[in-house]
Design a protein around this nucleic acid. Structure first.
Lengths: 185, 185
DNA sequence: GAATACATGTAAAATGTTACATGATTTT
DNA sequence: AAAATCATGTAACATTTTACATGTATTC
């Protein structure tokens, strides 16, 4: 899967492993992320599979950059993947929910502390989606040939916003419910 | 992480790998899941680490069952884990969003077909949370010593419900947005 | 003077998925 | 008659994370 994300970015511009990590962090991190080390190893594998090719760009006073470029085979692979519909719901993993599920033996005060901490985090995240992320996409949208792309990017940003909103709401409800059992206001 | 899920179930009752898979599928699958094969290998590792111990229960006309039991060390490990607060937001992976993000070159009709299919899936899922899952938890809640547990289980069910609702809403919005670009009603 | 950014990567471990293997019983 | 359920597991593979390794330049 990471392969497709990397191919996707490379359709816009050539990039090094380092660049690709930066790109992911500011754009898809909401729904797809990877560690730097995984990006490097995946790119290497992709080159072996001839989906990309690379060349070294020498630099002064910085380590050389290995810049990757998508091949025709890479473009075909990506297109084929986007055309393939997903026919199932993706199963998630939510550590917090797993912990909560098995926390009946735990002191309710500890649960509450954790839930309140989480609420803070998600609220901050929500604000980021509504401000910084929104602005970044709006800027791209300004350039004429990026409007189709920006519309889809906006949709993924909106998902992040709705998700964070939902999460905060759920935390509010859950905090109230746990407070009742703990005899606390 | 799967280790803690398995330990969690084993605090309620002894169980075989097969049983644990069934339990997960009807309870935590909303936020935590695992394949049968991973459950078997993880249990084996847990026994080596002395978090569980097992014995064979012979059966007629069925393969023997290997039934696992949590040890004191296992209980301590689980308790320690639940007491450890999560101080970050978990990063998700949403294949559908990744595909959408890189789908600007794709025929809008294809995108729409996929989004509509997804809407169906999430709507069905939503109804399950509101009926079957809700009923199952309500039944457990009826037994006196399970009320604290059932309250937390209900919270995780509610998350599933809110998530599905949010997803359907987002799909509606996104479908409309893509329809506009495609000049379709 | 310390921390961060720039830039690359390898190695090992952990986690998770897919495929294979077996075979009786029960349900459709 | 075919498919699903019960029940166990192994092997191979793919993915992901964590730790290690290096060294300059810029910012605090």
């Amino acid at each position: 899967m990471l392969t497709y994300a990397l191919l996707g970015f490379l359709t816009y511009q050539n990039a090094s492993g380092y660049d690709l990590k930066q790109l992911m962090d500011v754009s898809t991190s909401n729904f797809w992320h990877a560690k730097q080390s995984q990006i490097y190893t995946t790119l290497k594998k992709m080159e072996k599979d001839e989906l990309v090719l690379s060349h070294i760009e020498p630099q002064e006073s910085r380590p050389n950059r290995r810049v990757y470029e998508i091949t025709e085979a890479g473009r075909a692979d990506l297109k084929n993947w986007t055309a393939q519909p997903i026919t199932q719901i993706e199963s998630r993993k939510e550590k917090l929910l797993l912990k909560l599920f098995f926390s009946a033996q735990l002191d309710p005060q500890r649960i509450l502390t954790e839930l309140r901490l989480q609420k803070n985090l998600h609220q901050t995240q929500l604000e980021k989606y509504q401000t910084i992320t929104k602005d970044v996409i709006a800027q791209f949208s300004a350039s004429l040939d990026m409007q189709e792309d920006a519309k889809l990017w906006e949709a993924t940003r909106r998902f992040g916003e709705l998700y964070a909103e939902m999460y905060v709401r759920w935390l509010d409800e859950t905090i109230k419910s746990v407070e009742q059992g703990a005899g606390e206001q």
